[in-house]
Design a protein around this nucleic acid. Structure first.
Lengths: 106, 106
DNA sequence: CTTCTATATTGACAGATTTCGATTGATCTG
DNA sequence: CAGATCAATCGAAATCTGTCAATATAGAAG
């Protein structure tokens, strides 16, 4: 259960408050696992810009529940967008959130 | 004991290999804790561009060994540079590494 | 050489994370 | 409705992480 949407704050400009540091670290924590980094790159690299779980399980070499878990972490962090269409769940990269994370390090 | 220097790879361009994903996640893992994000911002915001452990323990509200631990994680990830001068250890932000992490998300 | 001071390391513990198998829920198809 | 398929959730095991107190190390000062 997510209580608030994570927001990335500029890290190098001025000392962050506890809340800002917590919120920023939350986003980077979502990027702190190789499986999730790979998931992001797989979804982003797909020509259609979206993929379903069924297309992600095999290239990751992890079980379906594990992939589902990692996708949830990315969605909760705001880095992926999930859309359920019929039985399938389609994921797209949230480029705004990624850009915010990138900008936080400049 | 660090076996290899972490390298950030562009996440959104093409699917990453296992090694690239591992290496990239390692850098973000260093940013995945509020104490370390705060440490980075404290060092970066300091006019001199460097700080010693003694100046970082109090604003973090953590014990000296814990701060020392977090600083080691940041140094191992290449995000901070440590220079021992006498009894003091001075830390500077490695702006190249930070820029690489930022660029990996573009 | 002894003492003091600043960091680093060790050891221990609690809590979080990763992972899977089994199950559930939801939707499509016959 | 019955069966099949895709994804999410649950429960549990193993591992990793953050934290501190205690100790070690290394340089500075007397």
């Amino acid at each position: 259960m997510l209580t608030q949407t994570p927001v990335c704050c500029p890290v190098l400009e001025s000392p962050l408050t506890d809340e800002e540091a917590e919120s920023t670290a939350r986003v980077f924590r979502a990027l702190a696992d190789p499986a999730r980094v790979k998931l992001l790159s797989l979804v982003a690299a797909n020509p259609d810009g979206e993929m379903c779980v069924c297309g992600l399980t095999e290239p990751l070499g992890l079980s379906q529940p594990t992939v589902s878990h990692h996708l949830k972490v990315l969605v909760d962090a705001g880095l992926l967008h999930r859309e359920k269409r019929g039985t399938w769940a389609w994921f797209r990269v949230n480029h705004d959130a990624i850009a915010a994370a990138s900008a936080a390090l400049r």
